[in-house]
Amino acid sequence: MIGDMPERLVKLYASEFAISTAIYKGSGKRFFNSIAEQLDIPTTEPRYNKDGECVGEKAMSMDVLKDEISDNIGPNTLLIFPEAKRLTTGVRYWLEDAISNGVKVICFAAANPGKDIFLEMLEIELELPSDKLIRETMQAEANRMGLNITRSRLAELQPLAGRNPMLARKVIRNERLGLNQKASPQHTQYVVVMPLVIACLMAFGVMRFIGMGTRNKGLYIFGGIALISGMTLKQVGQVRGARKRLGQ
């Protein structure tokens, strides 16, 4: 879980590095401005009139800002990006040069995008948050929304959230609207056990061979019938309707 880890990293390495942490929120210029301001890098440049006289200051363009930051960062700079998956191609390519100049970069993401700069970075997978933390998150969200929810109901709703705090909060919001009765889990912490069912069915295949080897016709026939019946039921279970809804 990422949680407050970026803030804690900032505190931890504040004495060793010049640190900047930024989240891309749609505007590249604001993103680079934020980085520059945290590193005490100027974000403005002199404005000149027609005669070449300085008449004030103007905000740097994004390209100029990028170059300015690049000129002022080095091995003693640490850049932290809590939502690294949002970083645009342009930002990532700029970071590529920064990394090659010795800048330390820490990216946090729910999943490794597995391309350009992410391929070069060392990957550390964080542990899932504990059940206790998810429960506390749900309780806190319920308190925030003024929703009175029992411990029993929290335990029932927790499987819908898995170990994802964002889903934990969403489940509580859904509960407030009464949407959890037929809700499906949205987390991806699941494993499909149908192969186990098929493996269990194969026991009847083993039974069939035992019957064949020991000339026990009853075992042979029963094993065969049970195996085929089970496989048939599995096929019947795969009957499906439309995969898409109207408009999809």
Binding site: L128, L160, H187, Y190, V191, V192, V193, V197
Partner: peptide, 17 residues
């Protein structure tokens, strides 16, 4: 729909499909 944590303490939910 919710499945079960068949392999607890591994935090994965076992589902049929």
């Amino acid at each position: 729909r919710q499945g079960v944590q068949l392999f607890w303490p591994i935090p994965v939910w076992a589902v049929s499909v």
